[in-house]
Amino acid sequence: MKHRKPVLDRRQVVAEILKRRGDALVVAGLGAPCWDITAAGDNPLNFCTWGGMGGAAMIGLGMALAQPRRRVLVITGDGEILMGLGSLATVGVQQPRNLAVIVMDNEHYGETGMQVTHTRLGVDLAGMAKAAGFRAAGTVYSQAQLAAWIPRLHRQRGPVFAAIKVTTETAPLVLPIREGPALKQRFREALLGARAFE
């Protein structure tokens, strides 16, 4: 299959998705997805990981099961999801209605020297998600496709999966809080109120 060169800008894509987040809970995979969601506006209901590579979708699953009335968006990278492909199967088995997994797929390991990932070499993440039992899964290449997918990411019955093809253009670093307990406690207090301290 001929390679189709990504054209979308990751910062713009993430900003457009999060503009309509409402009260959604957002988990970001380590690296650029964290800078992207922070650039779109810091929010206590963002949980940015600085490690635990391969775990973002599972964090999203635990959260979605615990909070079935809130939308949970996992925004992560292609390298990160490739490290936890089994989690697609685990999500598929659980069928969380409120979970969307969104991969900002630049087909490269952007934090470690821009080596190509498997997605540049033909691996179809959306196809894998679909086969794992996601109710909707697709690859987004164009602005028009993105416009059609954004409402699905926020509202369609999950689990929903989108691999959004973005360029390798790096944007300025916008760093979230680094300290784990601060990130955790800020998130829990915003979500659970006084229960966060029980």
């Binding site: 635990g52 599972m58 635990g62 099961l65 089994g86 989690s87 685990t90 979500l191």
Partner: peptide, 25 residues
Amino acid sequence: RAIPLTTEEEGVALAVGAWLGGERS
């Protein structure tokens, strides 16, 4: 909720999400 995993580290990450969402795992 019984959650079969494909590999154990999934359960470690799940515990983080469950706790952030207010549940114990």
